[in-house]
């Protein structure tokens, strides 16, 4: 078990607004971790910092003891909350692009997953429904042999049946030594695949714990605890 991510007193402000407030935490290898919080709690800000799309206002952030940069991008496979792919491309084009871009991309696995979800590699992205686009992007991200997968709202737009397949895909396709950080507010759908959760509230971490410990201690589901902690 080694530490993949360390952050100390990590803070990000946008003008007067504080999005992350002195966050300190560690992410170890070999876990599926839910990053849970209501809208605007700082989930995406944290994820963007982790992927070098934002720079911290203050504090420290290391991925395997190195600052965020080229090396960290090699080992983190990131699914953003918004797409950055060119919609005029076909799935095949995008696979080639990923293959050229990432040394750890396994095209065969991507084709396999596309086939089981009945997505034709020849289709253009812009001809696809929102959910299908999301599936393609998740396939791209999960086909890398990364050490950390960071999935920002991976299942929001897909139907429940595909959601099950996607969760299954996540479970059977990641290396047990790797970790997956999933941000979502669809907790009840994914809570059985998580083994840890991080609750984030108004830019601060209010809980990081093992999922079964929480159930044992509170006698309730993560979903129920979430509703209690974040009651409006």
């Amino acid at each position: 078990m080694n530490t993949l991510v360390t952050c100390k007193e990590l803070t990000k402000t946008y003008g007067k607004k504080t999005a992350l407030n002195h966050v300190s935490l560690e992410i170890e290898s070999g876990h599926i971790i839910g990053l849970l919080g209501p809208n605007g709690s700082g989930k995406t800000t944290f994820i963007k910092l982790l992927n070098g799309l934002l720079t911290p206002t203050s504090g420290e952030l290391y991925v395997k003891k190195l600052p965020v940069g080229i090396e960290s991008k090699k080992i983190i496979s990131y699914l953003p909350d918004q797409t950055y792919l060119n919609m005029n491309n076909t799935v095949q084009d995008v696979l080639d692009y990923f293959g050229a871009f990432y040394a750890d991309f396994e095209k065969d696995r991507a084709y396999q997953m596309l086939e089981s979800l009945k997505i034709s590699p020849k289709d253009k992205l812009k001809s696809m429904s929102k959910g299908t686009k999301e599936k393609v992007q998740l396939i791209l991200v999960m086909s890398r042999r990364a050490e950390l997968y960071v999935l920002d709202e991976p299942i929001a737009g897909v139907d429940p049946a595909a959601r099950d397949y996607i969760l299954q895909t996540i479970l059977t396709n990641y290396d047990p030594e790797a970790s997956i950080l999933i941000s979502t507010h669809l907790i009840s759908d994914i809570e059985n695949i998580l083994d840890q959760v991080i609750f984030i509230k108004e830019g601060e971490i209010c809980l990081q714990a093992s999922v079964d410990d929480i159930r044992m201690q509170h006698q309730k589901s993560i979903d129920a605890l979430f509703r209690e902690v974040f009651k409006c």
């Binding site: 070999g30 479970l171 059985n192 695949i193 083994d195 079964d212």
Partner: peptide, 17 residues
Amino acid sequence: VRDLAGEAAVNPNTMQR
């Protein structure tokens, strides 16, 4: 562990436990 975790849709660590 992995196959059964996939089937039950739970985390492999949970199955391992």
